[in-house]
Design a protein around this nucleic acid. Structure first.
Lengths: 233, 233
DNA sequence: TGGGATTTGTTCGTATGTATT
DNA sequence: GAATACATACGAACAAATCCC
């Protein structure tokens, strides 16, 4: 009986995931200060665990860690954003090359279903819409089975949403969903050239949406409430 | 006057760097256990700082962090190694594309000088030879100015040396130095196609060196001695 | 400019979990 | 297979730096 919440699978990963999701959903916009105390208090863990999570997030480029001055949600510059997308192109192109003509039936179904849920979320104006659009790309990457590639694509997709939060249209979901469908068709057909072409075009259109948006966030503890629940904290 | 060694630039980064170099030099071969106590003792810092460094190294894929069972130098499988090189191909190809015909004179000189020192180290049978070969690739990447790309190439090159330690020929330096020279020439000439070709071929030949090597390491504190000094610890 | 409040950096003790004999 | 030895996981408390009046 010595496992009250550790047994629930909730250790430091949970803190990491809660914060990450909050950032990706733009509930914690870029620049938001992330004080160790408030976060730990809200999530019911000590600062040690929070520090660990923040350190990990900083390695992923989602959080900036200024010495003696605390952590904050990263605010990548426009140029960093451009560089990021250049790298993302190269890796997602690799994903498509590896996958063209190699998708199993189950994988095709999973992708198709994911696109459906993207569709629905958008129609309902659901906030998850932004995250779902990104998850299409990570889902695709995961199907390569290449752990390194998966990790990098995950990271770049996550950071892309930061760029979009800073420089993208207010709430335009990141991706044109129809483009996801086209890409899936090309992959099914085993047409690597077309698939690559589509992916490149798709990412280019994502990249070139550069306008402004502005939001403020009040108290970090309020924002974290729902994310804590989701992680069983 | 409260800065005895913190002032020397030595905080947690120093622990990280010392361990990383020890791993890359294969002074700490894959599988070596990394107990927080011994390391902290030898480096003169507390376990907290060591933990932080180990956590970072695990994010970079150099260290495995098994819950409740401590840290050890990562021992990637052959398949992970293959996947790693696939990803590395894609990114270094991008590096070459970005750089072809765009190198400044100073950059060309720096690369040329680096190759010279590779040459010399190898002739002397210097242990640094392995690390220098890898640093040619990271030097190249750094010239793109693309922070994301640089970080990933750094990581992949570092992890490559783990693969080589596990599955490569005993002490064959990682790269054929002549191939570095050829690549540099193609980049100077602005011949992107040839440069890409050379890089691909070069990395393929690195990948396909898969034999066996075996070493043991005695006490981790002895090994760390020289690396501690180098970081002012 | 100064001083108090707040936040981060670090250490260290205790509890928990894992290997070993 | 139980007890012992050991290493890690976590948290509370202290020290130092920064921020804000």
């Amino acid at each position: 009986m010595t496992k009250d919440k550790a047994a629930a699978g909730g250790r430091s990963p949970a803190v990491h995931r809660a914060l990450k999701r909050a950032i990706l959903d733009q509930a914690l916009p870029p620049g938001t200060k992330l004080p160790e105390d408030s976060i730990g208090e809200r999530l019911g863990v000590s600062r040690t665990l929070v520090r660990e999570a923040l350190l990990r997030l900083s390695e992923e480029g989602l959080v900036e860690l200024r010495p003696n001055r605390g952590a904050a949600v990263a605010r990548p510059s426009l140029e960093e954003g451009y560089d990021l997308f250049v790298t993302r192109f190269a890796l997602e192109k690799l994903v498509v090359e590896l996958l063209a003509g190699k998708l199993t039936g189950a994988q095709q179904d999973a992708l198709s279903r994911h696109i459906d849920s993207e569709d629905e979320a958008r129609r309902h104006g659901d906030a998850r819409s932004i995250r779902l659009a990104g998850e299409f790309h990570t889902l695709l990457a995961s199907m390569t089975g290449n752990a390194t590639l998966i990790r990098y694509v995950n990271e770049l997709v996550a950071r892309s949403s930061l760029i979009l939060a800073l420089y993208g249209r207010p709430h335009s979901s990141e991706c044109a969903i129809s483009e996801h469908r086209q890409l899936l068709e090309a992959l099914k057909a085993g047409d690597a050239a077309t698939a690559t072409q589509l992916m490149t075009h798709h990412l280019e259109s994502v990249t070139t949406r550069a306008l402004l948006t502005r939001d403020k966030v009040e108290d970090i503890r309020d924002v974290l409430a729902s994310y804590a629940a989701a992680e069983g904290l």
